[in-house]
């Protein structure tokens, strides 16, 4: 047979074999994407897609190794406080290893915590620039975590990290209204709990956020009772402080000391816990009925007026206008 004819037949056979396997490979790719074994495709034009995923795709089998090296480079950028380079490095790293929680978590932490603190305390920029950079860094960290969750919707630790960031007393001013931020934090914590894999703490953190959302006190009370029951009545001081506030809220005319006796082990313990909660102004915790309870408890425990918790100077919540 003529050599060229042979090559023609070979080309035809290659095309036929391609047509035969194409539907199978197409279905398999979808299956792999559904099993989180391959990243989902970006809905952009082919050229742009190849540009964006070039390294991620072509380094098959070596992607996580390259991500390890880039993580080392990001550490060097962090040491030199080159925040833009840190952000860029983590963008590439998560393209290479989109299912590694550590990279998402660390990338977000660098922006929302380290870069933000740098602009708060160390930068030589003018105050207004520092304030803008501080806010931008925190929002960048939040965006990064939200992208992380889009890529890993079942990862309870990423959801928990978002909840933690949104309810952080030192960052909340960057997000606008604290009430809305606590609501978003609650949603993130709740989503983490709903995965069924989260630790017991996560549900408690969800409660701490929900209790700070104005207008959702009834839901918060139901959750507080559930959490306390789940912990077999061995909760934390914050939990008992909130339980008191939330039980008090619907009926301000109730017998406060009776409520105190129902919730706390002793009146001394009640005074300590409620006193601390009264002083935690930076955390925006609700204080319904706390002043009333403290007044009555101080009278009973013979605390002098000068030493009264209610006389202590309260710290104002974090306010960027005052910090810069």
């Amino acid at each position: 047979m003529n050599q060229w004819r042979k090559y023609m037949i070979l080309c035809f056979a290659v095309l036929m074999a391609g047509a035969l396997r194409l539907p199978f490979e197409r279905t398999l790719t979808v299956e792999l994407q559904q099993a989180n074994l391959l990243p989902a495709k970006l809905e952009v034009k082919t050229g742009a897609r190849i540009g964006q995923t070039f390294s991620a795709v072509s380094l098959g089998g070596l992607r996580t190794l390259v991500a390890t090296f880039l993580n080392l480079r990001a550490f060097a950028f962090f040491s030199e406080q080159r925040w833009e380079d840190v952000a860029e490095s983590y963008d590439t790293i998560v393209d290479l290893a989109p299912r590694t929680r550590y990279y998402w978590d660390t990338g977000s932490w660098h922006q929302a915590y380290n870069a933000a603190s740098y602009y708060l305390y160390e930068s030589d920029l003018p105050p207004l620039r520092r304030k803008l950079a501080w806010r931008e860094s925190i929002l960048k960290g939040r965006d990064f975590l939200e992208r992380a969750i889009q890529n890993n919707p079942d990862d309870w630790q990423l959801l928990e990290a978002l909840g933690f960031l949104l309810s952080d007393a030192n960052k909340i001013a960057a997000f606008g209204s604290p009430g809305e931020s606590y609501e978003k934090a609650y949603e993130a914590y709740k989503a983490a709990v709903d995965t069924g894999n989260a630790r017991a703490f996560t549900e408690r953190a969800a409660l701490y956020s929900l209790a700070r959302v104005p207008g959702r006190e009834t839901e918060a009370l139901t959750l507080a009772r559930k959490v306390e029951k789940d912990l077999d009545h061995a909760g934390t001081p914050t939990l008992y402080g909130l339980l008191y506030v939330l039980e008090y809220y619907p009926d301000p005319n109730q017998d406060v000391m009776k409520l105190v006796d129902t919730i706390f082990e002793s009146r001394k313990q009640a005074y300590e816990i409620l006193g601390n909660q009264w002083l935690r102004t930076r955390d925006h915790f609700p204080v319904h009925g706390i002043a009333r309870a403290i007044t009555l408890l101080e009278a009973e425990l013979q605390v002098s007026e000068a030493q009264s918790v209610l006389k202590h100077k309260l710290q104002s919540p974090m306010n960027p206008e005052e910090e810069f």
Binding site: T29, A35, L37, L38, G60, G61, T64, A97
Partner: peptide, 23 residues
């Protein structure tokens, strides 16, 4: 698509390194 083999499906290796389960 017809001529070249699909090597991307074998990138599952990276997902497994990241802790994913391969059925």
């Amino acid at each position: 698509a017809l001529i070249l083999p699909d090597f991307q499906i074998f990138n599952v290796i990276d997902a497994v390194i990241e802790g994913q389960v391969m059925p």
